[in-house]
Amino acid sequence: MFEAIFTYEFLQNAFAAGLIIGVIAPLLGVFIVVRRLSLIADALSHVTLAGIAGSLFLSQSVAAFALLNPLFLGIAASVGGSILIERLRSLYKHYEELAIPIIMSAGIGFGAIFISLAQGFSNDLFGYLFGSVSAVSREDLLIVGAIAIVVLAFIFLFFKELFVLSFDDEYAKASGLPAKWIHFLFMIVTALVIAGSMRIVGILLVSSLMTIPVAAAMRVAKSFKQTILLSIFFGEFSVITGLVTAFYFNLAPGGTIVVTSIFLLLLVIGFKKISVSMKKGAVA
């Protein structure tokens, strides 16, 4: 594959986008997991599906949409979904989790309608659902790159506030941090990462790249910063291994990336168990 990367532009795009997503998805995923928002990522990915399907449908009937990258409407839907989730969470203060199934069902519902209204994009849709090695265009790569800049700038500028908010949101509010605004921006950035990642990992599996590497890192990390670094390492390893496997065996990269990350997680859990029992044995 490494020789092929230098030969084919589509592989260069897929590989570069994969490497970028391998950093930003687990990086933001650490905050998503520790803030117990993993299911929100799932809900947003389904809203993105509605946006993508809507754009593909409109491209058949409205000339202006034929030239528009479906990713843009996907991003718009994802960002809109994140705002709606926040509105619903504040409306149902005692049942905040209700927002997730509502938005997720809305995403699937609209997605299903657009898919059934429009015919003939099943191949495109398969790529959006499970990721694709061949479908990443140079424009997609530029969008992913722009999203990565936004994510990295956001984390760099608000790292200490995000840390405090994630650890203890009441303390963050009491100490006068603009918790509400930072959370709002966090949701927007999450929506951007989900929309950007789905070209490689696919809509149905995008949240797994934000959570499984983090789950593995949390088993072995000794500090928060170590959790971030290990999550990125596991994320990158999964993306690279998954893309290479997908290319050679003609599989959907979303599947191979996620299965690799699951194997990594199992390995880490096993390693942790063995090291704990060895320590206990040494003490006894």
Binding site: F163, F167, D168, Y171, G176, A217
Partner: peptide, 20 residues
């Protein structure tokens, strides 16, 4: 309040008090 299970060291948690 505190998010139990959070992967952070004592030093990281206390440093959070300097954020504001």
């Amino acid at each position: 309040s505190f998010n139990s299970g959070f992967p952070a060291t004592v030093e990281e948690v206390v440093a959070g008090g300097l954020a504001k």
